[in-house]
Design a protein around this nucleic acid. Sequence first.
DNA 1: TAGCTGATTGACT
DNA 2: GTCAATCAGCTAA
Length: 191
Amino acid sequence: MPLPRRFYRRPARAVARDLLGCVLVSRRGRTVTAGRIVETEAYLGPDDAASHAAFRPGSHVLFYGDGGFAYVYLNYGIHCCLNAIAGAMGRPGCVLIRALEPVLGLAVMARRRRVGSDLQRLASGPGNLTRALGITLRDNGADLTRGCFTIEPPDRPRDFRVGVGPRVGITRAVDLRLRFWISGNRFVSHS
DNA sequence: TAGCTGATTGACT
DNA sequence: GTCAATCAGCTAA
């Protein structure tokens, strides 16, 4: 069963941390691909200068809507990035999924990524993981609690340490420590 | 209508 | 280490 709606109806920071170890599942027809979430970043409301809620109007309807939906956007004209909306209705916030550890459909992912057997880079990086799972702009607004894209609870005990640090790849509010990752996991994109 | 920016990646020096 | 690729949405005119 996917994570329930109430999981997402919490502050983005808490959702980002608890999402580590969970499994993102993508279903394209009979093709299923999945990966364990090993790296996330939290983005807050208008007060967070790096958040799209602060400077990208098109995202408002999702940011301020109910939690548990996907926010997919295109950046640098080439790459799609996947976010999970956090917070209850009226509370802005989201979690950027930065890296996955592939667990299901490895061959399909490799074909989509056009890479060889380099598992480590298959879904490591926000642009890479969307391509590996076949996520596109059409999936913007998808319900993560049911449907083609879901996030399942951890498939094994939480035996890892959580790393915390500043977000990467952004130019505003760089000093906030809103990035979380599974300590020591080699699939984390920015080590 | 033209020009700019960005939560990136991969190819190249 | 540098740099091009390439698109949505804003801003200025």
